[in-house]
Amino acid sequence: MSAGPLTLYGLKNCDTCKKALNALDAADRETAFVDIREEADLQRLVPAWLKAVGAEKLVNKRSTTWRNLSDDEKSEALGSGAKNVLMANPTLIKRPVIDTGSEILVGWDSGTQQALQA
């Protein structure tokens, strides 16, 4: 892997975020970690992420937070109210969100890993 520094947005206790950080560290990628609950400027970031990847990809529909939402909140989260629902429930954001400087990658799957190797 090459290219410039990355910013990884996630949660300190998230296993997937830890896996991503470890893999990026092993590949000598300079990566800054930002906790989405404590440090991230969600007011600025969430709209940019939604524009870049869309609510369907950014909302973690496998999370406990998702299961605890009402049906109205779920449809809002995937529609025009996504920004408000995600800002009110940061743990609903699929993790990690990786900002490469030129694109936003969501999740830690083979697609994300391949994109970071390019």
Rank of each mutant, 00 (worst) to 15 (best):
G10Q: 07
A32H: 13
V34C: 02
L42I: 01
S63W: 12
P5A: 13
M87V: 15
L11W: 14
I36R: 00
K94M: 06
Q114G: 05
E39S: 02
G10R: 14
E56H: 11
Q43F: 08
V97T: 08
K94H: 08
A88N: 10
A32E: 10
A27P: 03
W66V: 06
I93N: 00
V106W: 04
A77Y: 02
A23Y: 04
N68R: 11
L8Q: 06
T100N: 10
L116K: 08
N60K: 14
L8C: 14
L69W: 08
E38G: 08
W49I: 02
E30S: 09
N84M: 05
L69M: 12
K61Q: 11
G4F: 14
S102I: 11
G101R: 11
M87W: 02
L45S: 00
V59Y: 00
T7L: 10
V34D: 02
K74H: 06
K74R: 15
K51L: 09
Q117H: 13
L8I: 11
D71T: 11
I98N: 09
R37S: 07
R37M: 08
A115R: 11
R29V: 13
V34T: 03
V59K: 00
Q114C: 04
S80G: 12
L105V: 02
K19H: 11
D15L: 15
S102P: 07
M1T: 14
E73I: 04
S2E: 15
D109V: 12
T31P: 02
E76A: 12
S2T: 14
W108L: 05
G111F: 08
E73F: 04
V34P: 03
S70C: 04
D72V: 04
P47V: 00
L24I: 05
C17L: 03
N84H: 15
E38M: 15
K51E: 12
F33Q: 07
I36S: 01
D41N: 05
G79N: 06
L78H: 00
Q43D: 04
K94W: 04
A27N: 07
A40K: 03
A26P: 00
A52H: 03
K74F: 07
G107C: 03
V53T: 11
L105D: 01
R95N: 07
S102G: 15
Q43Y: 02
L8M: 12
N68M: 12
M87Y: 03
L86G: 08
P96N: 09
T100V: 07
E103F: 13
A118P: 11
K94A: 05
V85P: 01
A20Y: 00
S80N: 13
C17M: 02
L58R: 10
R29E: 02
V59Q: 01
E39C: 05
V106S: 03
P90I: 02
D15Q: 12
P47Y: 02
N89R: 13
L78C: 09
A40R: 02
D71E: 15
E39H: 03
Q113M: 13
R67C: 08
M1P: 11
K94C: 04
L92D: 01
A118E: 15
R95S: 03
Y9S: 06
